[in-house]
Write a protein that binds this DNA or RNA. Structure first.
Lengths: 350, 350
DNA sequence: ATACTTTCCGTTACCGTACACGGAATTCAA
DNA sequence: TTGAATTCCGTGTACGGTAACGGAAAGTAT
């Protein structure tokens, strides 16, 4: 095995009768080479099957590359905290190969903070950027800027309808609504379902939950068209109000045993649900936040659908690093991650 | 960021008034250094926080490292085929950093073939080995040999009660039986369950299914002690016999709607089950073999519990590579992988 | 033909580490 | 004290590639 002696830049220099300087110039096509020499070198590269020695290259180039991660600030116990945790994991494995990671955070409810932070990020002159698209327009102008500067970028979580990105890692949203419905109903007819929703402000943010809800409703429509579907809106910043809203609802609808929420905030409903147990109840939510997993353990939540946000950023970073260091393109652009079904019996090793 | 100029071997040479040769000697402690010099160098390394440049080191060392993977031969559509597929994935990412992978296969029912192949493997002088322990005694003597030669090794799938391995990647077996029971019953009382088992030959192989069965039975005992549990044995090499066995069983037990199998062969039961549908039936099996996933899609199997064998070997290889190249130890030895719950609604992106 | 550009290309000095080699310093025996 | 054996250490080169520098060859204008 590994019979073929590694052939070097010098080999093709000798083969073509040129010097390694010239060979290097065509390899990085930085001009100053005649067409004839260029062709000869290319041919020799082809025939000898030359592959550059990464180590030598990196050593000679010197310095460190930088990858920037631009995601919403992670308040404690939020979805983005999970994503942020993937940064450290990735950092550990790429720093040893000369890549540093900088983490930029912005307020996901403040478009100005996004602008500012994006600007700072650009100043750092990264060789790659990991992005979670929140504000449509701003994301677009940022990616344009990146393209101009020749900086590759990856999307995580969700992605806009553009095309210039290097790769995308996320969950198939519509399908996740389907899966969610199946887990909630257990494949059996269900008379009624309560959807708990969060009141959004008018920012035109990308909202993953609309696709999920669409998938969910389609599943219900197709399988249990008779099922009544109620909606209750809550305010994430007013726990008492949430409690009141749920209380009011369940007083008038004691017959509803199926509860679902399409964002990562099912934990907001847990205090009420736990205080008012219902043996027939089934609750499904999304994302493996600490609070959600605790609710899974204590039985308040039946199933959680997870998407490994940490893996998403980890993969995005790896992909960017490989591209920045080795120039290696990922096998495909879009990576739809597996949707993990979490129950109290398999949370522990998650 | 990244302010500190990278300090090199020369820096500590200057700092100590010694030469880089001496510094190098203490770094690789290959002797021929006086105690005094040794101490001085160590101190300087400490103070300056010297970290070797991996690229330069690898470049200077030259040559390729080799990682061997030693797992049972993968007949088409078998569990080990899944594992083998992880090899290519890993290979792609490590060859670029100068690591080659050799794949050794043996007949998992023939201990002699294991001996032979293990011998061949050693001859290849790998810098790391990925092992799936099948034959207890043989595994032990192999690992001893590896330890003597200073070759690190990782276990996947299952692991013996030894301690010299670098890392282990596998599923928590006992727990997976628990999870399996919960998915089978759906958390509701069930009057009776059929376990389909494969008759084993007398080889003292490590058998993951015994732990799974134990977990399963404990769950049933704890939750539904009244449940009757039947066993039917089949022969993987005689499909007609399997069909006959199931047919006989279900003729006398038409009331049994819950079927489970603890190894990856649930697909063996699929022909019968599919030919004799039962709307109330629930079937749970293990591992994402192509045939199993197809059964999931067509509704014959309700749930599959997956453990990503490809990821297991991939991670094992990565770990070994990092250790062999960078000398980096994994953060912990035992990696219990998440148990994936697969249904027809989330198979596609698996 | 001369001077002046361009276009090409070879030379050379690194990058940071590994390791062989040979020599200086020290120790030991006689 | 001298020679040999040890112990310790510095020098030099290789590893494969990058990129600045400067000069030769070819082309252009006068």
């Amino acid at each position: 095995m590994a019979a073929t002696e590694k052939i070097t830049i010098m080999d093709i220099a000798r083969r073509t009768g040129l010097s390694k300087g010239t060979v290097d110039r065509v390899l990085h096509n930085r001009g100053e080479v005649s067409k004839k020499s260029y062709a000869k070198v290319m041919e020799a590269i082809q025939e000898l099957g030359y592959e550059p020695n990464v180590f030598a290259s990196l050593l000679a180039k010197g310095g460190k590359r930088l990858i920037a991660v631009l995601i919403p600030a992670h308040e404690n116990g939020s979805f983005w905290e999970l994503a942020a945790s993937g940064i450290d994991k990735a950092a550990a494995s790429v720093t040893t190969v000369g890549v540093d990671i900088v983490h930029f955070e912005y307020d996901q409810y403040d478009i100005d903070s996004f602008r500012k932070v994006a600007g700072k990020m650009l100043e750092a002159r990264p060789s790659g950027v990991v992005l979670a698209p929140m504000f449509q327009g701003e994301t677009e102008s940022l990616t344009e800027e990146l393209t101009q500067r020749g900086i590759p970028y990856c999307f995580i979580d969700s992605k806009p309808d553009t095309n210039g990105y290097l790769a995308y890692f996320g969950m198939p949203l519509y399908k996740s609504g389907y899966l969610c419905a199946d887990q909630l109903t257990g494949g059996r007819d269900v008379p009624s379902v309560l959807i708990i929703r969060v009141r959004r402000d008018r920012f035109s943010q990308s909202d993953p939950t609309v696709n999920r809800r669409a998938g969910f409703l389609d599943y219900m429509m197709e399988n249990y068209p008779e099922c009544r579907i109620d909606n209750v809106f809550i305010d994430p910043n007013a726990p008492e109000e949430t409690e009141a809203a749920l209380s009011t609802y369940f007083q008038t609808h004691p017959d509803v045993h199926h509860v679902v929420m399409f964002n990562s905030r099912i934990h907001l409903a847990v205090p009420y649900l736990q205080a008012h147990p219902d043996p027939q109840r089934r609750v499904v939510g999304f994302d493996n936040l600490k609070a959600n997993m605790d609710a899974l353990r204590n039985g308040t939540v039946s199933v959680l659908i997870g998407q490994r946000p940490d893996e998403q950023v980890n993969l995005a970073i790896q992909t960017l690093a490989e591209y920045a260091i080795l120039g290696k393109l990922p096998p495909r652009k879009d990576h739809f991650m597996h949707m993990d079904i979490l129950t109290s019996y398999n949370v522990e090793d998650y």
